[in-house]
Computed example of a mutant assay.
Amino acid sequence: MSHNRWAAKTVFVTGGLGFIGSHFVEELLAAGARVVCLYRTERADMLAQLPESPDLRLLQLDLTDGPEMRAACRYVTPRVDAIIHCAALDGNTEYKLKHSAEILDTNLRITSNVLNCAREFAVPEVALLSSAEVYQGETDALLHEEDDYRKHMRYTPNGYALSKTFGEVLADLHRVQFGMNIYVPRPTNVYGPRDNFDGGAGRVVPTMMSRIAAGQEVVIWGDGSQVRTFIHVQDLVRATLGMMAQTTHTTMNIGTSEPVSVLQLAKALFEVLGHPERIRLDLDRPTGASSRQLDVRRMTEVTGLSPRPLHVGLRETAEWFLSRRAVAV
């Protein structure tokens, strides 16, 4: 990533104390940007991991409140050069199904507020973090950015997937009606340091890792044959910023060409943590799509990024997790 591009620019990062947002904050500060970190809930653990910098400003606000967001754009800084929108309600499959209405309502409202503020205050560029979950349906083929997943849209009770789909629709319509410069990165499953390792509604990698470290069994929904790909959070950040630097494409799949079944993932995590395997398959639970693999040639050609192999990223994540766990004990 070219550091000169961001030097002295003011960037708002929504969800800046979250898993993904905090990595954007860190990378942008390293690139010389002035960063306004917008967050809803103060997290002392996350604050302690961000670099101390005179170019970092922390701002607590409710992104579902339009006037509050507009006030931030109007009064906090003389100008806003870019918004990186990471804030969203998210979680594992069970959480998404149980909280679909809340997730859809919240995520759409904050996305709408971000876009409205970007338009009102003439923000030159916006990145809306989307998701590979916009590709609903069953297919073993690689999923390309130009696949029109909305032409024959399939209903899903997953409010998170719906929020990302309609967030992209909002982005498209704002581009057409208002001529806005909006980038939409579509990452596959994201993992890495600073994720939620407390269990509960967390993503699959930290949830499995936490259970393994605690000496518990890992329960996999279905037979574990469902195939996914994973991207390290730092690689996601660098690919997104590289996409914005090149300006050639407004939509980009971000992931790897390294498919792995959920069962293989669990086995890999037992190995990196040095614990004997304890895996139970729950064949009565829903599994989601049998396969979801992205065509990532655009990402490679545009950004030149070579994401780290999964075994390297998992080992780095395990080392971070174990070091934080040791400090907590």
Results as ranks from 00 to 15, higher is better:
218 V>I: 06
218 V>K: 00
222 G>R: 01
224 G>H: 04
224 G>W: 05
225 S>Y: 10
225 S>M: 09
225 S>Q: 13
226 Q>A: 13
227 V>K: 07
227 V>Q: 08
227 V>G: 00
228 R>W: 09
230 F>E: 00
230 F>S: 04
231 I>A: 02
232 H>R: 03
234 Q>I: 14
234 Q>D: 13
235 D>P: 10
237 V>K: 00
241 L>Y: 08
241 L>S: 11
241 L>N: 07
242 G>K: 09
243 M>E: 10
244 M>K: 10
245 A>C: 09
246 Q>P: 06
246 Q>V: 15
246 Q>L: 11
246 Q>F: 08
248 T>P: 07
250 T>M: 12
250 T>W: 15
251 T>C: 12
251 T>M: 12
251 T>K: 12
252 M>P: 08
252 M>G: 08
253 N>G: 04
253 N>E: 03
253 N>D: 00
253 N>C: 13
253 N>A: 05
254 I>Y: 02
254 I>S: 02
257 S>H: 14
257 S>W: 09
258 E>G: 05
259 P>L: 00
259 P>E: 06
262 V>E: 06
263 L>W: 10
263 L>P: 07
264 Q>A: 15
265 L>G: 00
265 L>N: 01
265 L>A: 03
265 L>Y: 00
265 L>M: 07
266 A>E: 01
267 K>Y: 06
269 L>N: 12
270 F>T: 10
271 E>D: 14
271 E>N: 14
272 V>Y: 09
273 L>R: 06
275 H>C: 13
275 H>S: 12
276 P>N: 10
279 I>N: 02
279 I>Y: 01
279 I>S: 00
280 R>F: 03
280 R>L: 12
281 L>P: 02
281 L>W: 04
281 L>Y: 05
282 D>C: 06
282 D>S: 11
283 L>W: 09
283 L>P: 09
284 D>E: 15
285 R>F: 04
285 R>K: 13
287 T>G: 07
290 S>T: 12
293 Q>A: 04
295 D>R: 09
295 D>K: 04
295 D>N: 13
297 R>Y: 03
297 R>F: 08
298 R>A: 12
298 R>S: 12
299 M>N: 03
299 M>I: 11
301 E>Y: 08
305 L>D: 05
305 L>R: 09
305 L>Y: 07
306 S>A: 14
306 S>V: 15
307 P>D: 07
308 R>D: 08
308 R>V: 15
309 P>S: 02
310 L>Q: 01
310 L>T: 01
310 L>Y: 04
310 L>G: 02
311 H>N: 14
311 H>E: 15
311 H>C: 06
313 G>R: 01
313 G>M: 00
314 L>C: 05
317 T>R: 03
317 T>K: 01
318 A>V: 13
318 A>E: 10
320 W>S: 07
323 S>E: 14
323 S>R: 12
323 S>W: 04
324 R>D: 06
